[in-house]
Design a binder for these strands. Structure first.
Lengths: 218, 218
DNA sequence: CCTGCGATCAACCAAAAGGTTGATTCCGCC
DNA sequence: GGCGGAATCAACCTTTTGGTTGATCGCAGG
């Protein structure tokens, strides 16, 4: 059986319709179900599973809130159901910030594509993911390559996390609470961040991080 | 002739496909052309015009860069070609910041819808725009109402100037030097800015200002 | 002409952020 | 098994910001 069964997850009906139209026309690919958010996606996946018709690939939009959870949760299905491997998750999103990419890869996504990619690229990514491979948009791949090549200040995941909260205007105290750590630790992280970004205050850190696309700005 | 001729403008092939599928099914609506950016859109509109088959509605995504220009430019067609009215422009975007909405309305858009709106709402908006009416997404309408009820204090030119330097990560001392004023004055301005933006520190001010598009971010 | 507002500055105090030193724990790696 | 890096926290100190009060100047509008 070489018909690839795709599960769409995106909160925009327009985008779902687009993907459906775009992928549905292609022979060998069938869109078997859709969901508007992470919760519905998990329910849908479970249902398909019990029907004995599991999806082969999950195509998921990455939103700040529930998106990431979706990936990790999908991964957890794998752990729970021993014999049945979880479908690979292919992220399809608008932004290409380091923070997003790293988070997605770390959460176990097997691909990261941008929404403005040409249809053919998206199709290829789906095929590749279904075959157990990985698929990165050229822009994303380039960014990752750059990260490894440049011994440039490699920020840790935690530090990027911090940076993101920083950019929302939160004070050290608020950040500490949010991350369940002490203010002292926040300050330590900040000192490290400043050092790595070659900067000496939080505002400049945000400016540099945003410019280097370490964090996203909508 | 009651067949509505729609022109799609969106840089995401996925979204264009979605809209095409979503609107094309509906009787009385035909998607006659598409474009990926403002420039191509203008060229396409002109071409349709010379063919004697002008579009009735332009459905346009609003991107930071060229999107807004597209609306104004479309408006300019109207001014140029005396007898031929320009097609109404319906904005369809992801974000609903005050600045975006205001800018769109000011530029002459005849509608502002959000991409996560249900298909039916989008169809209604297209029909309404084609009929010469306006269409606002409920969320957008609510936001506008809120603005009228309690208008946000406008920042002075000087204050925006400050904000811009602020966003580069400069300290008060540096800003003072740059603007040839004293640190005291910088602080005074900042206090005013914080008040107007409803914020209490510089980082949050930048976040809000950026979100409201009060300052640029490349 | 007077009122209001933007821009400018000063002095002062409280709070937050920045910087340093040092210490602990938990990893992964050679 | 030890080495180094990431993450965590504490105590202490300096600098920067934030917040307040009050004052001067110039210009636009009623």
């Amino acid at each position: 059986m070489n018909n690839i069964r795709v599960f769409l997850v995106d909160d925009h009906p327009v985008v779902r319709a687009g993907l459906r139209a775009m992928l549905g026309d292609l022979q060998g690919i069938t869109v078997v179900a859709e969901a508007a958010d992470g919760g519905a996606a998990l329910a849908g996946l479970a249902k398909l599973h019990t029907l004995g018709e599991p999806a082969d690939v999950v195509l998921m939009d990455l939103q700040m809130g529930a998106g990431m959870d979706g990936v990790t949760a999908t991964g957890r299905i794998k752990a729970g159901e021993a014999g049945q491997p979880a479908p690979p998750v292919l992220i399809l999103t608008t932004f290409d910030s380091d923070a997003d990419i790293l988070a997605a890869v770390e959460a176990g996504a097997s691909g990261y594509m941008l929404k403005d990619a040409p249809p053919e690229q998206i199709r290829q990514a789906v095929l590749s993911a279904a075959a157990g491979g990985t698929a990165l948009a050229p822009e994303v791949a380039a960014r990752l390559m750059g990260r490894i090549r440049n011994p440039e200040p490699a920020l840790s995941v935690r530090e990027i996390q911090l940076l993101e909260l920083l950019a929302t205007g939160m004070g050290n105290r608020a950040i500490a609470k949010q991350l369940f750590i002490s203010e002292a630790t926040v300050k330590t992280h900040l000192v490290h961040i400043y050092g790595k970004l070659g900067v000496d205050n939080r505002t400049a850190a945000i400016a540099v991080a945003a410019q280097r696309r370490i964090i996203r700005r909508p």
